[in-house]
């Protein structure tokens, strides 16, 4: 069943459209990749899906969450779904976490907020979550501050926070762009494992085609605020219909060929 669906989403700032007529849907267990060059409107789309656009931006269209239109809804209504039905992980884990709050409490926060757990129960669940995202020595680590963790560990914390209240859709906005390549691969593996386990639907945003292709089944391509292509990953890769997607595939293929001679054959 579709959890999150948007039709004709348009975002304007001072009358200038930044995102135009974007439509797609996400159900549990879906894995959708959203790809596009820098400035194409990916992050704005993601923020709009949570009702978190910067003030001054105007939206039109529809954003259905569990069938209910949330676009233009009061903050009270949005708060019921944020973190609980739809969650997001941002690009930069250092700034996305409170630098002065122990990470355990940051994970425990939403549990107490949405599930009314008391402090010690929430703390225990936070430790469990640290374990599930494979953080070492969770019982001790929950007391650490973000600056005491590595970049990859911080992003694991951010994932635990986002998933703690078992949302049915997870939006990941370039969650690995700020990390170096080996750590990036580990986080992608973890993400893959977590969505298998929890059945959360994934909207994975990136400008890196090989990364998206490895994780997503469905692909959306964005350019200048519009969706220019939408289809199964394999179809888009084999038969890109838009010029832009063709370019993307060509350049990605060139890079990948250099790195790994026959990558497509061994991918699932």
């Amino acid at each position: 069943m579709t959890v999150l669906e948007t039709t004709g989403l348009t975002i304007t700032l001072d009358g200038q459209p930044l995102v135009r007529d974007v439509s797609f849907g996400l159900a549990a267990r879906d894995r959708v990749g959203l790809i596009g060059e820098s400035g194409s409107g990916k992050s704005l789309t993601a923020l709009a899906l949570l009702g978190l656009l910067p003030p001054g931006m105007r939206t039109s269209g529809r954003i259905l969450i569990d069938g209910q239109d949330h676009l233009g809804a009061p903050d009270r209504q949005w708060r019921r779904v944020r973190g609980r039905t739809v969650s997001i992980v941002f690009q930069e884990p250092l700034t996305a976490l409170d630098p002065l709050m122990p990470v355990g409490r940051q994970i425990a926060g939403p549990l107490r907020l949405h599930q009314g757990l008391n402090r010690s129960d929430a703390e225990r669940r936070a430790i469990e979550w640290c374990d599930r995202v494979h953080l070492p020595d969770p019982a001790r680590l929950v007391r650490a501050l973000p600056h005491e963790l590595s970049g990859g560990q911080r992003q694991r914390v951010a994932l635990a926070m986002a998933l703690a209240c078992r949302p049915r859709v997870l939006i990941a906005d370039e969650p690995t762009t700020a990390l170096d390549v080996t750590v990036q691969a580990q986080i992608l593996t973890l993400l893959d494992e977590l969505i298998e386990e929890t059945g959360v639907g994934l909207l994975f945003i990136s400008h890196d085609l090989p990364v998206v292709a490895g994780l997503a089944r469905h692909l959306l391509v964005m350019r200048n605020g519009r969706l220019v292509e939408s289809g199964l990953v394999d179809d888009v890769l084999r038969r890109p219909r838009s010029d832009y997607a063709r370019q993307l595939v060509a350049s990605a293929a060139r890079v990948t060929r250099l790195a790994r001679p026959n990558v497509r054959g061994e991918d699932r």
Binding site: R80, V81, D98, G109, L113, H114, A158
Partner: peptide
Amino acid sequence: SQEYVRTARSLGYSLPRALWRHGPRN
């Protein structure tokens, strides 16, 4: 204006509660 306030909001905190959660210590 800090991103962690946006994070808190993305998890369902209202703006005043997010401020209460992060403001004093920061």
